[in-house]
Structure formats: C-alpha cells, structure tokens
C-alpha cells in the first residue's frame, strides 16, 4: 500500500482498519475517528482517487492501493485549493470533521466531473451540474455537528469553480 506517495507495510493483525493504520501505526492523525460505524464520514480518505470510509475498511483489503489523506493534500507545503477555501469560507468550527469533509469534497468533484448522477439529479441521462443542491446531497455522508454546513458548501463551490 502507498500512503501519500510513500510505501507502507500492512499491519500483522487483520482487524486493523485503514483508519487505525493511519492514526495509530503511521501517526497520520489528520484522518479522524468520529464513530467507527460508517455513520459520520470523519474518516473519509481517497483510495485511487475514490472517497471511502477508512473506518469500515480493513487495511489488509487495500494492499497495492494508493491512499491519499489530508496530510497529502498540501502542494509544496502550501494548503491545497479546497483547504484554502475552507479557511476562507469558515467551512468548519471545531475542525474535527474537517479533514473528512475536505477529502470527501475532492472525491466528489471528480464524481461530478465524470458525470455521475446523485439522488437529487432530475435527469439521470443528462449532464450533472455542481449546484448547491447537488453538493449538499453528495456531501451528506459527512456530518458536521458544529453546523458549518453553509460554509462548507460555499467553500466547495468556490474551490470547484461552480456557480451558486
């Protein structure tokens, strides 16, 4: 497995989740544990570009795969565009769900780009727009308890260059 471009060894205990591998074995604590039940999205990471929940992923299942976490998003030591947009639009408060929201937003952007529909897409065979309603539905797997939803959606729209 490769994490943020570096090869890593899989854990000996097959019970270790991808989330715990990151947090406890690799010291990459930017990925958060909110529920360990697949119910909050705080542990979202990108595997070969697709967003998944690392809490429900057994690390051993991901051998040979490339994992990108919040720590891998910086570009030349600078915040990436989505990260910067979250700061600019106050897309967080306590910050605990934030890395998951950001990774999820990046995964979502590629899904929209390739035309994947969502629950609120009216025409399944038409083109997909990055409207606020679409982004809200697509980001609903990432809970935020501080209520930063408006800022998160605004940040994503800004970073993805979408209109209102």
């Amino acid at each position: 497995m490769v994490v943020n471009g570096r090869p890593v060894r899989l854990p000996e205990d097959p019970r270790v989740s991808l989330l715990d591998l990151l947090r406890e074995h690799l010291g990459l604590t930017g990925t958060k544990k909110g529920c360990a039940q697949g119910a909050c999205g705080a542990c979202t990471v990108l595997v070969d570009g697709a967003r998944i929940l690392s809490c429900l992923a057994l690390a051993v299942q991901y051998s040979g795969r490339s994992v990108l976490t919040i720590e891998g998003l910086a570009e030349d030591g600078q915040m990436g565009p989505v990260q910067r947009a979250f700061v600019d639009h106050d897309g967080f408060q306590c910050g605990y769900c934030t890395p998951g929201q950001i990774c999820s937003a990046i995964g979502m952007a590629t899904e929209i780009e390739r035309g994947a529909p969502s629950h609120v897409t009216a025409d399944l065979t038409g083109t997909v727009e990055a409207s606020a309603a679409e982004i809200r539905e697509r980001m609903s797997g990432n809970l935020c308890r501080c209520g930063a939803h408006n800022g998160i959606i605004a940040a994503i729209q800004a970073a993805c260059g979408a209109g209102p």
Partner: peptide, 9 residues
Amino acid sequence: GASAQIRNM
C-alpha cells in the same frame, strides 16, 4: 442509499 463513500465501497 447510504452515502457516496459507502456506495464507493
């Protein structure tokens, strides 16, 4: 059903 992340898995 579920969320985008879960549907991806």
